[in-house]
Design a protein around this nucleic acid. Sequence first.
DNA 1: CGGACTTTGGTGACCAAGTCACCAAGGCCT
DNA 2: AGGCCTTGGTGACTTGGTCACCAAAGTCCG
Lengths: 224, 224
Amino acid sequence: MVGTWINKFPGLSRLPDDVRSELEAGSQIVSVPAATQVFAPGQSADNLLLLLDGTVRVQQKSETGREVFLYRVHAGESCVLTTACMLAFEDYSADGVAETDVTAVAIPRTTFDNLVAKSPVFREFVFTAYSRRIRDLFTLVDDIVFQRMDVRLASRLLELADESGVVHATHAVLAKELGTAREVISRTLAEFHRRGWVAQSRGEVHLIGRAGLDRLVRSAGAQA
Amino acid sequence: MVGTWINKFPGLSRLPDDVRSELEAGSQIVSVPAATQVFAPGQSADNLLLLLDGTVRVQQKSETGREVFLYRVHAGESCVLTTACMLAFEDYSADGVAETDVTAVAIPRTTFDNLVAKSPVFREFVFTAYSRRIRDLFTLVDDIVFQRMDVRLASRLLELADESGVVHATHAVLAKELGTAREVISRTLAEFHRRGWVAQSRGEVHLIGRAGLDRLVRSAGAQA
DNA sequence: CGGACTTTGGTGACCAAGTCACCAAGGCCT
DNA sequence: AGGCCTTGGTGACTTGGTCACCAAAGTCCG
């Protein structure tokens, strides 16, 4: 059924009917396979993506050639920061890569601009998304500056684990996620292993003592 | 003359006359003394500030009680990230402090929302400002993760120096700027002194060998 | 003026994390 | 089986952050 995707976004449910139809008519559903570059620096973004399925990793390619992971966009969220550059007619400085097969709604610049002008509800949706992302960025900075690596790793492992408590990622990938070196991940995981919190096999980490990881994360968060 | 402030903002010069007058009528010029808290977490911002004079430091108070410097808003720029929270009716998670006496144009939420709806030029102005800030944040993350402290300090000293090459800041202040510890600043400055790049006196750093600092910064930036 | 207090800066010891230079084991391909 | 690439492990070293101090300079007041 056309347009049911709107219901995946609570912020959009209050859109009046005419705006809904305009949004549906002026956008289209796209699918991209895993590992596709969704947007890249030097290539001006011209669609706002609302993710229906899959995840997109957004990272900054630094001048020094290395990459920093910035944030991850999940189903039900939008790559909204690109819209700033979109409407400002500037290139985005970060790049986005589909981590899984992704389906998304692509809203082209004109439709987006139109809706922002016309609909207060849409504006609120957009600015709420902004607000979340910006907050995430602030938290990221905070984490990087003040949080110990073991805490950050523990917390990331808990986030990335699938239903059966397995994280499918090599040490190198985890290192990129956290903006650190592979060796640091190896050593920290070795320590976690020593404490009986994880078991390792090639390319995956099994969380066998979530309680320990949880405790580590909470003890650090509670220094408030 | 009323409204000449608009000319301080190139992005607004193309505003049609009716929007200009609405902007002038719906906003007001405010002055706040140095060290005033301009906005704070837990207190919803309800004005967009466009700085006419002075600077505002924006920082994140972390859960751990410490502060990270995020960015500085200069005359001719706007505290635009607060608007996201403003329009999303969420609290801002960072706080802003006037570093000097500040005069600014305060645009209340309703006027702002109105103009965003009505004027494409205003929208472009706002989103361009967003885009710059977001880029700055990305660069900040990148710097923190990959750049050496000596390079970051050198670059910050060059930025903060007044016309006669003096930086008025204590080691503790510089440490907060860069999210590091005072001791690290002391040691690094001692090293700079040893190399004949700076001279120190209580509360100030004199740049006496800018060339050296410049070289350090450029050599690191050029690792591309 | 002199003494107490505060702010600023300096230091050494120690720990956490990033870097460098390797090596070894596992998996993959032909 | 042999070669190659990916993944993970390790030790030595450097950088940066933390802790516990102390000393010098400035400030406030009696």
